[in-house]
Design a protein around this nucleic acid. Structure first.
Lengths: 345, 345
DNA sequence: TTGAAAGCGCTACCAT
DNA sequence: ATGGTAGCGCTTTCAA
């Protein structure tokens, strides 16, 4: 069933059917009614492929997601869902391309060179990301979620990790904590230059310097259970730590458990504050004061910006930082004198 | 840059270039080398759209995911990741279509009628699912993940919830528990006829009947924190309950917390056994003995089966139930005499 | 107000 | 071993 059949049945030309469908031309009421009747009766829909070939537009976006051991983390998934929804609003479909972190670059490149999509959304970007270089070089429309380190001239939206971590540090400092720690993403990510890790670290160090605090950082794997190991690492680096900032939601629960197992109660012996989804931060014991990553608004903005970019390649790059307020869940309290802490270990 | 340019540069016809690319024809070594050189130098890739139009095949699958309040659950995302990877193995792309549970049926139908994809994978099916009816009626290639209630003639893979729940019940019974409960998915899902909820319920009731146990069921919302409410519900229905089977991973952690808050220790006062990902079941306090949903093998099988179906519409439907063993995490223990339990409430 | 026909870029059949 | 060309199903310009 194609446009030709419809045209034949209705006794009009194919172009007329096309114009009835697109509304780009005035069509006589009688003709239109006749054509529409046939279309409805046959439940005809024009082939997306043929239309794409003719228009030079696929009405499809690709979303480059990291290949986290064949499953996706909560934070990623929030973005995936939000982006698919936002794209659907504008009648765009979303192609999932597992191709982050240096792996499967070729898969992404294939999408570009084969013109399989109109634009690309990159997640989990690196400070120096080969995918970004490639897309820039190709002049292909794209936007990154999480690119804020470099000053390449492209669109991005990002969570303001630097600012959020700074605020977290300030909150700890306000309660008298002088020795604090950052639980960052895995070492591997920091080494590879994941923007998120790098920015969190930068924000932490800058804030500590500004406030005259003693700060240490631990990188923490995202296996469940890595929380204990990172706690140990922190206390080895600085036994006087009384406040922890975490940007590693995957290990947050394990961290809390490890604290409990170590006989440290929160917030009495240790204050904890994090950047993590409510689903995670509210579910630990005890719950953790945290700022959420505003996935939905970021996704909406990313899609909107990308579509604009697809329409007009020449306009100024859009860059936007997103923040959300910290939700107090009582995991931050005043610092005790270190000597007063009751260590049983 | 298209196939014509390449042909011109190489001084050959377009068909020759096409055959060099596809390898469907013997090409003289010299010609092939010349053509390949041009192709490499130009980094040329044939347009996916044009190829799709010509072949009548998009090499794209759609994955219909539920629209869980704009974000996706852990179990779902395991499938999403695994399916995208499996499809990529076979050089198929994966389109995400947020269209489950009765909502956005039209989005799915559009994909079909516009021939935007070659096949569809449905998740979270209903016992009587309009999407299935529609795809059957259209004769469109598809497979469902989770369809096992009805006997329509289509491909499916499913987690053996009925069997897993039965085994869970048997394990409780073996420890002497006579009053047990099932924590099912939300009431709404059961009412709508989600296969998973329905099968879990059926397995539970059948097993209880066979073993002469007294069983009650509570439907539990998937907000974090709904665990407490469902515990209350269970104890209202039958205060003598000493064993719980949960197929609701989202509320599992909250359930464990609620038990603790209620002064019931696991497994001494209450045994708990679940169907849930290790990430969840191993992270509760205490951890819960559970069977994982085998997402990766199910996804692989689903993709493989769907591709076969796309190739050959006539063969017998494939149906496969997947199970995984329960991993003992010590949350199941012998039943105490109800009277001996120490209730403080 | 409508129709005819030239593409869009590729594949594959029919020639040579 | 290679070339010419007719589609694939749609959009849109040019004509009437």
């Amino acid at each position: 069933m194609n446009i030709g059949h419809i045209a034949q049945q209705a006794g009009v030309s194919r172009s007329t059917v096309s114009y009835v469908l697109s509304g780009k031309r005035q069509i006589g009421a009688a003709t239109r009614a006749r054509v529409m009747a046939i279309i409805d009766q046959a439940n005809y829909r024009p082939s997306a492929t043929a239309r794409a070939l003719s228009n030079g537009s696929t009405r499809t976006l690709a979303l480059a997601v990291p290949r986290l051991h064949h499953h996706l983390s909560i934070e990623i998934m929030q973005f995936v869902g939000a982006i698919a929804e936002a794209a659907a609003e504008d009648e765009f479909d979303t192609l999932l391309s597992p191709s982050g972190g240096g792996e499967r670059q070729s898969a992404l490149e294939r999408l570009v060179m084969e013109r399989r999509v109109d634009g690309i959304i990159l997640m989990e970007t690196l400070i120096s990301d080969p995918r970004v270089e490639m897309l820039m070089a190709q002049g292909f429309p794209f936007i990154t979620i999480g690119r804020a380190g470099h000053d390449t001239e492209h669109d991005w939206v990002d969570t303001n990790y630097e600012g959020l971590v700074r605020e977290a540090v300030e909150r700890l400092a306000a309660q008298g904590h002088r020795h604090i720690a950052l639980v960052n993403r895995p070492q591997e990510m920091l080494d590879k230059g994941y923007c998120l890790s790098v920015n969190a670290k930068a924000g932490f160090e800058a804030a500590c310097a500004d406030l005259g605090l003693h700060g240490v950082m631990a990188c923490c794997d995202e296996d469940d259970g890595a929380g204990e190991q990172s706690l140990r690492q922190i206390l080895d680096l600085d036994p006087k730590v009384t406040g922890v900032v975490s940007v590693n939601d995957r290990s947050l629960a394990a961290l809390m458990d490890a604290l409990a197992a170590d006989g440290r109660s929160v917030p009495d012996d240790m204050s904890v504050i994090a950047v993590a989804p409510p689903r995670v931060a509210a579910r630990t014991s005890p719950p953790v004061t945290a700022a959420d990553v505003p996935a939905a608004p970021m996704a909406a903005k990313a899609v909107q910006t990308l579509l604009a970019r697809i329409g007009d390649v020449e306009t100024e790059p859009v860059r936007e930082l997103f923040s959300t307020p910290f939700v107090d869940r009582g995991s931050v309290g005043p610092a005790k004198r270190p000597a007063a802490r009751n260590r049983r270990r």
